Amino acid sequence: MKQLKTIVLTIMTTVFLGVTNNMMAQSDTGTAMNLDTKQSAIVSIASLTANGDLEKLETALVDGLEAGLTINEIKEVMVHLYAYCGFPRSLRGLRTFIKVLDERKAKGIEDNMGAEASPIEDSQSKYNRGKANLEALVKTELDGPPADYAQFVPIIEVFLKEHLFADIFDRDILDYQQRELVTVSVLATIGDVEPMLRSHMNICLIQGITPAQLEELVDVVGKNVDQAKIESAKEVLNELLESKK
């Protein structure tokens, strides 16, 4: 009888451990599919800055700092997004950030400044550096004919390569994933730029952002924009994911 009880107890323990391990594995998988707290903060900060909602931005900036983003990382979010929604939104965002930092400093809170951008040691021309960065971003060589807009206005292609993809993307304060999260958040917020939104959502996938993380990004942005814009963003994402099947 004692031996039977021991066998039953062993079986129950094995089953319990198996179920527990399975639940933990599922939990780990679910966590990996979600944006982490820093990524989510980047999305909120980018969206609210692009939307000009400075009151909510103050809260998002505090949340970002508390999530572990450095001052320089948040400043770089503001620098990056001006390329997609303009200097006025970026500058207002930066002034809001100054206000938040001053208030926290007055309370005795010292936030982490973080690393500065590394010096550029590449001897290539800015245009070639930008082209190389873009190729690394999309993970393919870009040796085909110029896009229609580049043929129509060649200087815009120069500005894109030399300024956006060289001057900005060469700054290593944010990585490619983080920069694309900023870009997609801004594009979804301003709306009516579906081709560019699809393109940058695709770059997110190329850079290792998961479909579930993109879906969560759209949900986070959806708290800050009107329903029509968010429905459009969801449609773009769904069509993109369908094309990958």
Results as ranks from 00 to 15, higher is better:
L69P: 08
T29H: 13
E116R: 11
T49L: 01
T29N: 14
L17V: 11
E235I: 00
K2F: 09
E73A: 08
E231F: 06
K107V: 03
V79K: 06
V19P: 05
T59Y: 04
D122Y: 06
T70A: 06
V225T: 13
V153Y: 10
F97D: 03
G191W: 00
K38E: 10
S123H: 02
M1A: 11
E216P: 07
P154R: 05
A228C: 02
T140P: 08
F97V: 01
V77A: 07
M33V: 10
I206E: 10
I11A: 14
K126T: 13
P154A: 05
N238A: 13
V186T: 10
F87D: 06
A132W: 06
E103T: 15
K56L: 03
K234V: 07
Y176N: 12
A50S: 14
I230F: 04
E216Q: 15
V225I: 12
Y176M: 13
T140R: 14
G144N: 10
Q3D: 14
V19K: 03
D148E: 14
M196T: 04
Y127L: 10
T14R: 04
P88D: 10
L35E: 09
G68Y: 09
A83S: 12
I230L: 06
V218M: 03
L35V: 08
T37Y: 01
D175P: 00
T70D: 12
